[in-house]
Design a protein around this nucleic acid. Structure first.
Ligand code: ZN
Ligand code: ZN
Ligand code: ZN
Ligand code: ZN
Lengths: 160, 160
DNA sequence: TAGGTTTTGCAACTATGTTGCAATAGCTTA
DNA sequence: TAAGCTATTGCAACATAGTTGCAAAACCTA
């Protein structure tokens, strides 16, 4: 029992972390950013959590190690470089999530729907659900559409 | 010249204001709210501007007369009573706009698309553009959908 | 108009986000 | 690999947004 637990928690994470760190370093270099501890740690949070994060979430995770201001600036830098995108939410908290490869500095293409679970409060990028185009009234010209869906996510539905 | 200006600004607004004030009083009573100066003035702003307002906009208009806190509480009360609804925006400012008659205390039905003009920065309720339903991934259940479109509004398009 | 009830203003507080600047860390090249 | 340049970070101070408790004032009912 104890060995099983060890195997599940430790053995796989050691090589994964190596891979992940290299992946993160590559991503930073590809984005012409210098590789610093705070950037690595913050990116690591995104890759590990695999859901959208608020500034406050990140501060909880790495706030002892890095200053609030550094986190703000790092997130802004990542947005500028096309590494993460922002998600507007109905209750007006800014969330951030990793972009797919198609985004680059100054040019985001995150035209997917976002989903917020009312139960577990996690926010997901529904990468495969594209925001539909809609007919605008006369002389209104749409350049960007944000669609945020709230409800109950698959995990919460399964466990109830 | 001077008389024309007077006619345009004063004559029509006097009867309109009377009508408007009565309309506002009726709305407050219908919502089981006592009729106070701040509530009247704040509602008046919404009816006159005819576009979404932020707390800051309202504070600019009536901030000399009423306290910041009163404005916050009044807006919250109006939302609770189904008089105004909130609009989530990509840049994370809370906006408020008048509801149609179908909303009531605790039950909003504002399933229309919102439009934010990048040029004049006004936000509109596109009452006639209903938010489309979309197919959710397996086991995700949608209960609410927010759709916010940015671009250039009809007025800004006409004047360029 | 008097009474109880609701609303308001004030003060203090928390949370969130920004800016300037000096110290530090990262990168480049010799 | 070490020096020097540049980019990043931490700190302090500030700015804005929003919340809470409580006493005073306004509102509604009878
Ligand atoms: Zn992106
Ligand atoms: Zn996303
Ligand atoms: Zn409503
Ligand atoms: Zn609306």
């Amino acid at each position: 029992m104890f060995r099983v637990l060890l195997r599940m928690e430790f053995l796989p994470t050691t090589p994964n972390n190596k891979n992940l760190e290299q992946k993160i370093i590559d991503l930073l270099k590809r984005s012409s950013l210098s590789v610093t501890d705070s950037r690595k740690k913050i990116l690591e949070s995104f890759f590990q959590k695999n859901s959208a994060l608020a500034h406050a979430d990140i501060e909880l995770q790495v706030g002892d190690e890095f200053d609030r201001v550094t986190i703000y600036r790092t997130l802004q830098t990542f947005v500028d470089k096309g590494i993460i995108h922002t998600i507007p939410t109905p209750d007006n908290a800014v969330l951030y999530a990793l972009c797919k490869d198609s985004c680059s500095a100054g040019h985001h293409h995150d035209n997917h729907v976002h989903f917020i679970c009312d139960n577990c409060n996690k926010t997901y990028c529904l990468e495969h659900v594209v925001v539909p185009t809609i007919a605008m009234p006369n002389n209104f010209i749409a350049s960007q559409i944000d669609m945020v869906v709230s409800g109950v996510c698959d995990f919460c539905n399964a466990s109830s």
